[in-house]
Design a protein around this nucleic acid. Structure first.
Lengths: 247, 247
DNA sequence: GGCGCCAAACTGGTCCGACCAGTAGCAGGT
DNA sequence: ACCTGCTACTGGTCGGACCAGTTTGGCGCC
């Protein structure tokens, strides 16, 4: 009866939980694009919640582009790849509780692009304050990496994110800021999943230090290259094969 | 394909309209980050709609990160730049009905990054079919641009988008596909706004043709350069000053 | 038999009023 | 002065009624 089985989180909110369940069904492909969902009244009965709550849950999914509600007609599942926004990236990357290698790879590839471009733009726009901020973080990373400070992989992960965030801020590009918000969702939803990137010897603070120096010198090409190397190292750590190759 | 119908204003949906009104108030800065919204019951009375509809509207805004609802506490406006997703890019870029130059510039800059990177990845992953598809579109663009075919700026805009979409598809990167969905929202919400990019002599099909050739030869660097040039030309057309420069 | 119209039986959308469940702030006791 | 606990808020859930579109199928007409 009571599907009181607490999912990952979010008790209290009935609607949120229902949305979570439905999202999972869709993301896992158990409902397939184009299929019609049960009617709101049916869902309400099936999940033993009020129809208002069902609607609330459905609206959440609609807002993210997962489903399409049509007055008078059925509510249908949309094709994730052509209608969904980045909001459900976290759920796609970590479907079935595990990291999906395909999605993770795509994500890390895009990350390389981001890092590289942020480096390039940051080098063009950075103020001396920006440079100092970046340098402070980079140094801290180096210290933690060298074992001079406590923290380990977890601390590295946090600092790496801080560096990225600082870099984005340095570009003064607000579109990028919005993009970063979404990336942060992925990053913070389940940090443990990405720990591997920071554990081996793949993580090299020197890239960050090089990037800082390049930004200081206003050398956008070098900054881009350094950040690209930083991103590539993570990619290589998880997918040792060269960047190319068929999928 | 064509699913973006004119949505200038009044919807049949009460909740949607209310959400629109509130979103505008927030995006225009009339409610300011951190401020508390009136209670749901107050809003219901003020807008003469039911509280359920108010909640529906609020949930829509919450879903995109515009506001924060706390059980027992007040519903507050969040800082757009640190919490909002890309979903409201269209509203930020076109706030007050006009294109905001600052946002547009940021957007076009990011577009340059996208195009460039897509070119690079496409060159690595393209099948012969992909190349043919890209070439077909590029040729069409060239024909329209040369006046051999009807359409003018509007047709160019559509074709340019098709090319971009095809390029993204060629990368086989699904994260990028999601990202593209969001970009499409901006692109299709009010196409007339972006007409300027395709009207002057700024738009040069040769970049696309060069990109196709580079992709065919698996020359990722050349493809990246060509697409970057393509993006830069649009940027230059609207913001004639060199890429750098303070803001 | 085949065609077309119309009405019932769906669907989602809105409304109402009540109650549950947290929060914050004020009042009173210590 | 501090802490406690009540109370008057806030949002969250409920269920039941009704409105408004879509879909469907049967009935009458051709």
């Amino acid at each position: 009866m009571s599907e009181a089985e607490g999912k990952g989180a979010g008790k209290g909110r009935v609607a949120e939980e229902l949305a979570s369940s439905l999202r999972e069904l869709i993301v896992e492909g158990e409902i397939g694009a184009g299929d019609a969902l049960p009617s709101e009244r049916e869902l309400a009965a099936k999940f033993e919640v009020n129809r208002s709550s069902v609607r609330e849950a459905l609206h959440r999914l609609e807002a993210v582009g997962l489903i399409e509600m049509k007055h008078g007609g059925a509510t249908r599942v949309r094709d994730v790849l052509v209608s969904a926004g980045l909001h459900l990236l976290p759920f796609l990357v970590a479907r079935s509780g595990r990291l999906d290698p395909e999605w993770l790879r795509d994500l890390l590839e895009v990350r390389v692009m981001f890092l590289s471009w942020c480096g390039e733009q940051a080098a063009r726009r950075a103020s001396t304050d920006d440079v100092e901020r970046l340098e402070a973080i980079a140094r801290e990373v180096a210290q933690v990496h060298a074992g001079e400070r406590r923290g380990g992989a977890k601390a590295l992960m946090t600092l790496d994110w801080d560096f990225f965030a600082a870099l984005v801020a340095t570009t003064h590009n607000r579109v990028l800021a919005l993009l970063t918000n979404v990336v942060r969702e992925v990053h913070t939803r389940d940090p443990a999943k990405f720990k591997a990137v920071y554990e081996g010897d793949a993580f090299e603070p020197k890239h960050l230090l090089r990037a800082v120096e390049a930004v200081r010198k206003r050398d956008s090409a070098a900054a881009a290259a350094a950040m690209r190397a930083h991103g590539e190292s993570a990619l290589q750590a998880i997918f040792p094969t060269p960047t190319r190759g068929k999928r």
